[in-house]
Design a protein around this nucleic acid. Structure first.
Length: 249
DNA sequence: CATACGTCCTGCCAGC
DNA sequence: TGCTGGCAGGACGTAT
């Protein structure tokens, strides 16, 4: 292993190396935006890609521009964690530490056990703008700014509307919209705005299917009104002023 | 406790 | 052509 960018590690460098060296990866998982490598001793390597992180198999696709950590694999090959902006993190957790992190995350939107009623109840307890609510990993796991905005457009909800005023019918619509957009995006292997690549170096194909994200000034694909952009919570929100009317109008 | 905002970091692109 | 300001997929710490 080679750590070129120690600031990516959330675990002390010595422990990071010694906990990984010689271990076998028993399985790979995902929880929210965290990639989980379960090791043969029960510890886990947990990777969060942040904005621009990628995991690449060296030699499989494009070369890594900004390698942060290189893992030598047995019997051969190299897995590279690459990240221009270095907002991503890598850490080694034991079962207990992983359980705590897991519990701090909200439900998985694509899980069978995620029911419309649960979303309805959770939303009703908050006064946050619903777009910010969707980005809060403790409330619902794995939803980022692209899919939060896309789901809200499909559900006809203004991104700045307080979560608590949405009410049962639209909460059910949002539940369906989230599952729909996430399922379609996964099938398309993700959205590549600029940097995202899968482990083979391939771009995702969902970009052309975005209806509002990054499309302010263009016509709404549903009604033709001009899409708008606004900023709150330090993040851009994109919406159709006609399909997603502000609360009270 | 819940919510709001600045910050971390680098690169790209529109506009002047 | 070259510079500058704004903006970017996330999440955390601090302030209120």
């Amino acid at each position: 292993m080679e750590v070129l960018r120690p600031d990516l590690l959330r675990t002390d460098f010595e422990a990071f190396q010694s906990r990984l060296r010689g271990r076998r990866v028993e399985r790979l998982g995902r929880r929210g935006k965290n990639l989980v490598f379960v090791l043969d001793d029960g510890w886990r390597l947990v990777v969060n890609l942040g904005m621009t992180g990628r995991l690449l198999l060296a030699g499989a696709g494009e070369p890594s521009d900004h390698p942060g950590v290189r893992f030598g694999l047995e019997p051969g090959g190299t897995l590279v964690y690459d990240d221009v902006r270095r907002f991503g993190t890598l850490e080694i957790l034991d079962e207990e530490a992983w359980a705590r992190k897991d519990e701090a995350l909200g439900p998985e939107p694509l899980s069978r056990t995620f029911r419309p009623g649960a979303l309805e109840d959770a939303l009703s307890a908050s006064r946050m703008p619903v777009r910010s609510w969707l980005l809060d990993q403790g409330k619902i796991a794995g939803v980022g700014n692209i899919y939060a905005n896309e789901a809200l457009h499909r559900a006809g909800i203004h991104p700045a509307e307080p979560a608590g005023t949405i009410g049962p019918p639209r909460a059910r619509a949002l539940h369906g919209a989230l599952r729909e957009v996430l399922t379609e995006a996964v099938e398309a292997r993700g959205t590549t705005l600029r940097d995202y690549r899968d482990a083979r170096g391939e771009s995702g194909d969902f970009g052309p299917r975005l209806r509002v994200y990054g499309r302010d000034g263009s016509p709404c694909p549903r009604c033709g009104h001009t899409l708008r952009r606004t900023v709150f919570g330090n993040r851009s929100a994109f919406f159709c002023p006609s399909c997603q009317p502000p609360v009270g109008t």
